[in-house]
Every structure is written in C-alpha cells, then in structure tokens.
Amino acid sequence: MLKIGDFSALSKISIFMLRNYNEIGLLIPAHIDEFTGYRYYSEEQLTIANRIQALKSMGLGLSTIKGILAEYNNEDSLKRYLTLQAAQKQEEIEILQKQLLLLQTTIKGLGHSTSLSRFNIAIKELPKRSVISYRSTISAYNQEGILWRELSVEIEKQNIQFANPSYNIAIFHNEGFVEHQIDVEVQRAVVGKYRSTAVIKFKNVPATIAATLTYKGGYIQLSEANEAIANWISENGYEFDGPIFNIYHVSPETEPDPDKLITEVCFPIRNK
C-alpha cells in the first residue's frame, strides 16, 4: 500500500487533485485508516491514475473520464467512444480555425475602416418563410421601384397579411453584374395561404445562410457594400451559394430621406 504522498509522487497527480478525485468518486483510496484518516492507495491503482492522466491530456473532462472508466471496459467499446470524441475535437478545431481567420482578416481591414467596413459583416441565418413574390426584368437598377409598385397592387387585391418581420427582399438572379435586362424578384413574408396569379406567386422559401452587411444611407453605397462582402467571402474561406439579395429594413416606401434608409446586403454562402 502507498501513502497518499507516495502515490502522488509516483502518479504525478497532486495531493489536492487526489482528494478531489476521491470526492467525485473518480479514484477512491483502497484503504482509509479509521483512526488517523490517512489515505492509502494500492500499487494497482497506479494504472488507473495513469489512464486518468492520459484521458485528461486528450482534453476530456473529469465527468467524462469517470464515465469512461465505469462503462468502457474493453478496447472495442473504448475505441468507438474515443473515435466520436476525436470527430468532435476535429469539428471544434475547424470552428476555431474559422474564427481565427475571421479575426485576422478583420484586424487587417481595420486600418482603413469605413461605415461599410468588413468589420461590420456578419453571418446570419434567415429563417424559412412563406412569401408573396413578383419577378420580372428591368432595364436599370434604379427601376426596381416599378416591381414594388406592381407587388403592392396585387397585395391590395387579396388583402394580404404580412409576417413580422416582413422581410422586404429584392433578389438579383443574374449571374454577376449586368447593365440591362436585370432579372429581379421582390418578396415580402406573409401569414396564411393565398392564391397565385399570372403576376404574383406564393411560395415557401427555405432558410438561408448569408454573409450580411447592414448600413444606413442611400442606395449609391450598394456597389461599395457588394465589393466589401465579396472580398470578405474570398478572404475567409467561403464561396457563393446563390443569388445576392437586399433586405430593405427602412425603404423609400416609408422614408423619403435617402440618408435615413437602412439596407442589409446579403450574399448566400457555404464553406468551401
């Protein structure tokens, strides 16, 4: 039998931790003297102590280690469990690497920050929703209002109830920038079921992961916002995953002053 001090020296586990292990039932002394209270460990317990140290070095917590020692008493079952733990650690590493890259690219861009700085770009998930949709082509980007007016006419005809938030969205379906024949779809989220017509469609839209930049001001800043997000996506290991779209949180429909408009520019993305 080994006194707790000797066992501590041989196992390289501090006396404090050995007492903690005893309290949580992880490594209980083989014998406790009822008169002195001294704790004694058997030499066989050195193998258990060594396994605890090995599992701790893998980043496993004490409660997890206690479960392993109690439940996984053969190599096959332990191998399966540790394989799952390894996969989880790999996922955590990939998340940390992505976070590190975001930090590095943000730090790099802080020297020349503007109101549309890449520091303000965030990854968001837009929820799935039901929408009323109108899609057509326009000859110039500043004619987008024509689509919204057409949509409003159809909305009035069916007395449509909007969701909250209503997600006033314009989706640009052309691949890349075009100067003419711009394929645009305008949408608003709705509550309830309605009838599609030759002009408008009602449909369900799936959830979307997007890199987004929200700014205050006129639409003249859209080009700068698009460029900022495109560069951010390239630098941070993502790739485009669908047509870009704008969410108009404050639009000319309710605010005539361009300086007070609030627009969120969104680029759907996925990991490379």
Rank of each mutant, 00 (worst) to 15 (best):
I52N: 00
G37N: 10
N74Q: 13
N74C: 10
E44H: 11
L69R: 01
I48M: 08
T83D: 14
Y41G: 07
I93T: 12
K56S: 04
Y38R: 11
K89V: 12
G59K: 01
A87C: 06
R80A: 03
L102C: 07
S42D: 15
L102H: 14
Y81E: 00
R80N: 11
E75K: 08
E91T: 08
A87N: 14
S57P: 03
T83M: 08
K56M: 02
I48Y: 05
S63Y: 05
G59H: 07
I48E: 12
I52S: 00
T64D: 02
I52H: 00
T105R: 10
L60I: 07
D76A: 12
E75R: 02
T64E: 04
Y81C: 00
Q85C: 09
S57L: 00
L102F: 11
I95A: 14
A86Y: 04
K89Q: 15
L46P: 06
K56V: 00
I65R: 00
D33P: 10
T106L: 07
I107L: 13
Q97S: 10
Q88A: 15
A87R: 13
Y72P: 00
E92T: 06
L78G: 03
Q53A: 06
N74I: 08
Q45G: 07
L78M: 13
L84I: 09
Y38W: 09
S77N: 15
I95V: 13
A86T: 02
I65F: 04
T105P: 05
G109T: 11
L101F: 03
Y81V: 04
E43V: 12
E91K: 14
I95M: 06
Y40W: 14
I52W: 00
K98V: 02
Y72E: 02
I52P: 03
R80S: 11
L82I: 08
S57T: 05
E92G: 01
K79Q: 09
Q85S: 03
K56L: 04
L46I: 12
